[in-house]
Design a protein around this nucleic acid. Structure first.
Length: 521
RNA sequence: GCUGGGUUCGUCUAACGGUUAGGACUCAAGAUUUUCAUUCUUGCAAUAGGGGUUCGAUUCCCCUACCCAGUACCA
């Protein structure tokens, strides 16, 4: 393995549906690693399973990456389309494996020629029957060195017959001839040395005549080699096939440029057992996908973007699920992540995803926004509520008064609606608690005083209310709360003086008189 | 079942043989306060179990338990 060559990584999803958080994390880690080393991040589409292709999935993946601020260096063009023809910038096109179809067969044949693989003629049905037979006896079925000679293969048939079958049949495959008893020593950048004896491995299918396509294993090795990939950072589910991949590099004689491997642990459910799935999101009420996804049947899966998450927050929270900087820093921009990321600080064990934590990250990012930015983000929501073209400066002031309590911009309406609409109902518990006979005359009196304040500004209002109450020797809490109830309709919101100043004197008068005449005790 | 990987507060994690086992989220309490929050302070809470190795194990080794993955002509 050559450590001096250019760092090139690939993110190679298969377009079988929307990419979920775990997949995004894999993409992110690949990106951080590549950029940190001044290398390339390649996007390759692994669509060798024609049966599982899902329309729109490819676009979804690219849009999700873009939302997170990731643009592949190679594999997609300026318009976000997968590159199909070679160019200086994309020398390895096409980047969709289905379009690289003609390329793989020769490699598989080469393996056969050199004794590392063989032709197998049993149909899937025949193999299935054998498998069932075994299982009925309580045995594990493995198509491998122990029984490969009991199948119809090029290993036990004369050349003539084999040739004839290859020409006439269209359901044969090329299988890897797994060594009977060999210890393969492997290295993983996260887990260290791993050893496995090939005795337990099976003869994996490498290429299928039926659709003239390679399986993952062959396509993956061939493409990583051709695309000069230096590091493979992928999910843990690939760890068991690492020995096969090692042996394939060896069989091809590509050990010198064999990439280094790093296998990432999986994301686990917030509760119970097992890995995180789409269902958990539905069940527990959080998104599992970066962007909203509508399936062919019209089923909608919510996305972080649609739920009001900032992409920076999403990237940050995903990055810290299974990786830590070794310091106490928790808020990282994409640039900082590129700078700080390192594979040896990736955690080996699976990380349970906790939605509470996700919200906290968004809150942190929301706090970094200016009132102006938040206002711009809030305007569309106001518009939906029928508040068209409000004075932006005014909205900014309103946001300023409540921003500390929000996790999302979407929280703002609940937090501020009483600025935009008069109360039509008054909270019963608050009435009972604060709307007392002995207080009402004072409320009336203080309201008249407030209405006369000039200039009608928060500081003045606050000060004069205090003076008034102190002079009267009245109970501060009771009066303030009664005022609040009158102008808000409930016991919530920012400081009373803030609200009064923001709604203005005319609106204040209307609300007070409404309250005085409407509230029934 | 077999093979591989994993196991520190409820959760995310730090400590790569010597720490009162640290931080964050959550939760609880207190302070502030005109409500709800914010903020500040404090608190609760962990090395899966058992054997070794060692002067000393969260850390190294073995066994057990549990969790995860793979075991497809899917990726």
């Amino acid at each position: 393995m050559n450590n001096n060559r250019r760092v090139r990584v690939r993110f190679a999803p298969s377009p079988t549906g929307p990419l979920h958080m775990g997949g995004m994390r894999t993409a992110l880690y690949n990106y951080f690693f590549a950029k940190q080393h001044g290398g390339d991040f390649i996007l390759r589409i692994e669509d060798t399973d024609s049966n599982r292709f899902v329309p729109g999935a490819e676009e979804y993946i690219i849009r999700s990456l873009a939302w997170c601020g990731i643009t592949p260096d190679e594999g997609i063009d300026e318009n976000g389309k997968v590159v199909e023809t070679k160019s200086e910038k994309h020398p390895h096109a096409p980047y969709r494996q289905s379009q690289r179809k003609p390329l793989y067969r020769q490699y598989a044949e080469e393996l056969v020629k050199n004794g590392f693989a063989y032709y197998a003629f049993d149909t899937p049905e025949e193999i299935d029957a054998r498998r069932k037979e075994c299982e009925a006896k309580g045995e594990t079925f493995v198509y491998g060195h122990a029984n490969r000679l009991s199948f119809r293969t090029s290993l036990n048939m004369d050349a003539e017959e084999c040739k004839k079958r290859l020409e006439e049949e269209n359901h044969w495959t090329i299988r890897f001839k797994n060594p009977e008893n060999r210890v393969v020593k492997m290295n993983d950048l996260i887990r260290g040395e791993i050893e496995i004896n090939t005795a337990t491995l099976d003869d994996k299918v490498l290429w299928k005549a039926a659709d003239q396509l390679p399986t993952y294993h062959l396509a993956n090795i061939v493409d990583d080699h051709l695309m000069e990939v230096s590091h493979v950072i992928r999910g843990e589910e690939w760890l068991p096939s690492l020995p096969l991949h090692y042996m394939l590099y060896e069989a091809f004689g590509w050990q010198d440029t064999q990439p280094e491997f790093a296998h990432l642990s999986l994301l686990l459910k917030p509760d119970g057992k097992g890995k995180l799935s789409k269902r958990d999101g539905d069940r527990l009420g959080f998104p599992v996908f970066p962007l909203e996804w509508v399936s062919a049947t019209g089923e909608i899966s919510r996305g972080y973007r649609e739920d009001g998450y900032y992409p920076e927050a999403f990237v940050n929270l995903i990055a810290l699920l299974g990786w830590n900087p070794g310091t106490e820093q928790e808020i990282f921009s994409l640039e900082e992540l590129v700078k700080c990321f390192s594979l040896d600080r990736v955690v080996k064990s699976g990380a349970r995803f906790n939605p509470d934590n996700a919200k906290w990250f968004n809150q942190e990012y929301l706090r970094q926004k200016s009132n102006k930015e938040l206002c711009e983000q809030f305007l569309p929501i106001l518009s939906k509520k029928g508040i068209e073209n409000p004075n932006a400066e005014w909205v900014e002031k309103i946001i300023s008064s409540v921003r500390d309590r929000a996790h999302f911009v979407s929280d703002f309406w609940e937090l501020t609606h009483f600025f935009f609409e008069r109360p039509t109902e008054y909270d019963a518990t608050s009435i009972k608690k604060f709307w007392k006979d002995e207080i009402l005359p004072l409320v009336n009196e203080i309201s008249e005083m407030i209405a006369g304040i000039e200039p009608f500004q928060k500081e003045n209002i606050e000060e004069q209310i205090h003076t008034f109450i102190t002079e009267k020797g009245a109970p501060m809490g009771k009066i303030m709360n009664a005022l609040r109830l009158a102008i808000v309709g409930a016991s919530k919101g920012p400081g009373v003086a803030d609200i009064i100043a923001l709604i203005g004197v005319d609106e204040f008068n209307v609300r007070i008189s409404n309250a005085l005449s409407t509230i029934n005790r």
